[in-house]
């Protein structure tokens, strides 16, 4: 069981091509990292996998546990086990965090089955506490007026509540203070399991020191140009992405 991306090319609708034939396989139980310069297509790749309407798949396939990802609607992909913690989580005025999560969990239950409200709130509160979030945030509108770091934590909270089998974290570390970085990483590590994989997008070694990846990919100009082990993280941290220039 894995997430398998084959020869994926995608463009902005009526616009520039961003992804140029991406090949990537993430088996269950593994943590993969993607690094790469600004604008190389990391966020685009994660949004294309989720089905963001701004993008159009030109070529290629993506399989989630054998199911054709691109044949599914955005919400079906989520219920099939895919999750993306966004680089820039969106504010949704007037919809409380609690109602948002309730709707998402309710959608995962069989028809006719009602989510148990008491245990829902209990779970939500305990996960918020684990993430160092004030439980008052249950009653606040999703991300509205949240600080940068609070938004990131809120996305991680959603991941913990939804327990996806494939979670993509897009620069979740940016905006987190040192303590929050540790707390969030602990949360992710606690979720590591043989039946779950992570794709961690980051610019910094410090996150990958907490969440040790099994495999590290380098994305450059919409293509995976290197696949290596943890040593690649050290290399990039020290030398930057200059080595990619020779690829051109």
């Amino acid at each position: 069981m894995s997430l398998i991306i084959r020869n994926l090319s995608a463009r902005v609708k009526d616009g520039a091509q961003i992804l140029n034939g991406i090949n990537l396989e993430i088996p269950k139980g593994e943590v993969h990292a993607i690094m790469g310069p600004n604008g190389s297509g990391k966020s685009t790749l994660s949004k294309v996998l989720c089905g963001h309407p701004d993008y159009e798949v030109i070529e290629g396939t993506a399989e989630l546990d054998g199911q054709d990802l691109f044949a599914m609607s955005v919400d079906e992909r989520s219920r099939a086990g895919l999750f993306l913690a966004f680089q820039y989580p969106v504010e949704v005025p007037g919809v409380t965090n609690a109602n948002f999560m309730r709707a998402a969990l309710q959608a995962r239950l069989p028809k006719g089955e009602e989510l148990d409200a008491v245990s829902f709130y209990k779970t939500m509160r305990s996960k918020m506490t684990a993430l160092g979030m004030d439980t008052k945030f249950t009653a606040r509108a999703v991300n509205e007026g949240f600080s940068g770091g609070e938004k990131k934590r809120n996305d991680v909270l959603q991941m913990m509540m939804l327990e996806p089998s494939y979670a993509i974290l897009d620069e979740t570390d940016s905006g987190l203070d040192v303590d929050a970085l540790r707390i969030v990483s602990d949360g992710v590590n606690a979720m590591r399991a043989p039946f779950r994989s992570f794709l961690v997008i980051t610019h910094y070694k410090r996150l990958l020191d907490y969440i040790k990846p099994d495999v590290v990919h380098v994305l450059y100009k919409g293509r995976i140009v290197r696949t290596a082990g943890y040593e690649m993280v050290e290399h990039i941290e020290q030398n930057g992405f200059d080595f990619l220039k020779s690829e051109e």
């Binding site: 989720c50 089905g51 963001h52 309407p53 609607s73 955005v74 919400d75 992909r77 989520s78 219920r79 993306l84 966004f86 989580p89 969106v90 504010e91 949704v92 005025p93 007037g94 919809v95 109602n99 948002f100 999560m101 709707a103 998402a104 959608a107 995962r108 509108a141 999703v142 959603q158 939804l162």
Partner: peptide, 28 residues
Amino acid sequence: EEQLFYLLSRGIPRDEALALVSHGFLQD
């Protein structure tokens, strides 16, 4: 669209996501 996508990306079915976002717009 971004708000709608955010809800969909968490597995909330389209009709319900539409209702939540438009209701939220007024609830605000």
